[in-house]
């Protein structure tokens, strides 16, 4: 069964998942809903099977760590960029566990001609989320990319390993507290 407007879909979903709500900041004026990471998979499943959101545009993540404004930009210079001495962690950097990751999922419904953005917070100390791979095969590489660059573990992913960075780059470079260790090409 398909709905005619995205508001109908939202109202229907809210009956099943009470924790879903409209996000305060809309991304690019698309309907943006914030959901809990525990129900993310089930919400996507419902959206796909019952509301016609059967195309996964993309999976990505944002690191909300430290002083970041609502658009996601750092409000002061990142102290961790390419530190010459990796053993010295800059004192003004935020505490390691502070902040959170946002997993951002964009779904498209071709029957409604509608894009939809789901935002889900995960903990920064042990980031984990359920993989969307059983629903959308295209989530495979995108979740590997998020894992590679942010270190978010997707449970249930069949082949969760690095995809972009070479093996000798340790750590997750798009984390705001990433400190680059010199490798064999940095001299």
């Amino acid at each position: 069964m398909t709905h005619h407007t995205v508001e109908d879909v939202f109202a229907k979903l809210q009956k099943i998942f009470p924790d879903i709500k409209e996000s305060e900041e809309k991304i690019k004026n698309y309907p943006t809903w914030s959901v809990s990471s525990g129900s993310l998979f089930k919400i996507c499943e419902t959206l796909k099977k019952e509301s016609g959101f059967e195309y996964l545009d993309m999976v990505t993540a944002v690191d909300r760590h430290g002083k970041v404004n609502s658009a996601g930009y750092l409000t002061e210079p990142n102290p961790c960029v390419y530190s010459q001495n990796p053993s010295v962690v800059p004192s003004q950097s935020p505490a390691p566990g502070a902040g959170f990751f946002e997993i951002i999922i964009i779904l498209t419904s071709f029957s409604m001609n509608q894009k939809l953005i789901l935002v889900s917070r995960v903990d920064r100390t042990n980031p984990e989320a359920e993989s969307l791979y059983p629903l959308f095969k295209s989530a495979d590489w995108q979740e590997r990319e998020v894992f590679d660059l942010f270190g978010i573990k997707f449970t249930g992913h069949p082949n969760l390993k690095k995809i972009l960075t070479p093996d000798f780059i340790k750590g997750h470079p798009l984390r705001k507290d990433y400190v680059h260790k010199k490798d064999k090409f940095d001299y």
Partner: peptide, 13 residues
């Protein structure tokens, strides 16, 4: 020049 992933000049290799 300060990227984690770029060789800073092909003359390094």
């Amino acid at each position: 020049y300060d990227s984690y992933s770029v060789v800073k000049g092909v003359d390094k290799i």
